[in-house]
């Protein structure tokens, strides 16, 4: 068990290392001189050289990478080329919107996907199953940005033309100011971000439940005289927690990336839109920072999943 966790931790570290190397070397080989980008078009050669030396850009690549790693570990992600603000500060300013979006979406897709999947699997072939499968198909096929735009058109613009406001067009309102207003503003973004993943969860839950419900131990549970409700939830659902957890780890990790499109559609000032703006502005420190933050998320999510695994599966727990 210890060695299992150790190997997972090592893997998490590897993910971070690979990601950091990826972005760092990507920008190193990229055309365009950062010092020039930083100083602007009008700066003289000498000024550019001065900035280059200040940033350590004249040193060998591996030294630069190591010092970059060192700074990163200390939580220093450098400064934005555009407005010289610390990247960490820019990111933390954008955190609340993205975190609100992410948490709500995760809860929504779990609350939607798992029950639909169970319902579908309990009566395979029935009309409920067909409804569930329809939801799954439409859900996995709906491109996020099309869904977001359609929702905006149907639930914001059309009611507004009719003279009332059903949902706001977007924008982030702080949770602490008024949780209701916050939720009202976040609702359409949540649906947008959650639907596809909810469909994936419904599909996963349905498939796993169907497989599990054919297991011999489910027959044992029935032969014991348990109610169907208990058979499904206590014996059936318990077994699929492990694959669900695995999937959840991967998806929580991917939320930050998925939020990009949603934030863009609803004009949320989150980390995703920060990254998109940074790409437009060639503001590399911000891109590096966001990618590393995403990597950090992934690592944390992975470790949480592994710990949950140990809790969930006695066979892992007892393996020495």
């Amino acid at each position: 068990m210890i060695s299992f966790l150790a190997s997972r931790l090592a893997f998490a570290g590897l993910v971070l290392l690979v990601l950091s190397a990826f972005v760092f070397f990507l920008f190193f080989v990229a055309p365009g001189d950062p010092a020039r980008l930083l100083t602007g078009e009008k700066a003289t050669e000498a000024q550019v050289a001065q900035v280059r030396a200040n940033l350590g850009l004249d040193r060998p690549i591996h030294e630069q990478y190591l010092s970059f790693l060192g700074r990163t570990v200390q939580g220093d992600l450098g400064f934005s080329y555009r407005n010289q603000q610390p990247v960490t500060k820019l990111i933390s300013n954008r955190m609340p919107a993205t975190i609100s979006l992410g948490i709500g979406a995760v809860l929504m897709w779990l609350a939607l996907g798992i029950p639909i999947g169970i319902m579908s699997a309990r009566h395979p072939g029935s009309w409920r199953d067909r409804m569930g499968q329809g939801f799954i198909l439409v859900g996995v096929s709906f491109p996020t940005f099309v869904l977001g735009m359609a929702l905006l058109y149907l639930l914001y613009f059309m009611p507004r033309q009719a003279g009332f406001t059903l949902f706001p067009a977007g924008g982030y309102k702080p949770f602490l100011a008024d949780p209701l207003i916050w939720a009202w503003h976040m609702f359409l973004p949540w649906v947008t971000l959650a639907l596809t993943t909810a469909a994936i969860y419904a599909r996963l839950t349905r498939g796993e439940m169907l497989a599990v419900m054919g297991e011999d131990y489910i027959r044992t549970a029935r032969a014991k005289g348990l109610s169907e409700h208990k058979v499904v939830l206590k014996h059936g659902f318990r077994s699929i927690l492990t694959p669900l957890t695995t999937q959840l780890g991967a998806d929580i990790a991917a939320v930050l990336g998925g939020a990009i499109v949603t934030e863009q559609v609803f004009g949320l000032q989150g980390i995703g839109s920060l990254a998109v703006q940074a790409v437009g502005n060639q503001d590399r420190p911000i891109i590096i920072g966001v990618v590393l933050l995403a990597g950090f998320f992934i690592v944390v999510a992975n470790i949480m999943v592994d710990l949950l695994y140990v809790l969930l599966d006695p066979r892992v727990r007892n393996a020495h």
Binding site: R219, T220, K224, H235, R238, D313, P314, R315
Partner: peptide, 19 residues
């Protein structure tokens, strides 16, 4: 089921819930 009629079957490993 279970109270008046009980059942055991072939593969005892797959018949017991692993968790």
């Amino acid at each position: 089921r279970g109270a008046r009629i009980a059942m055991i079957s072939q593969d005892p490993l797959s018949c017991l819930h692993p968790y």
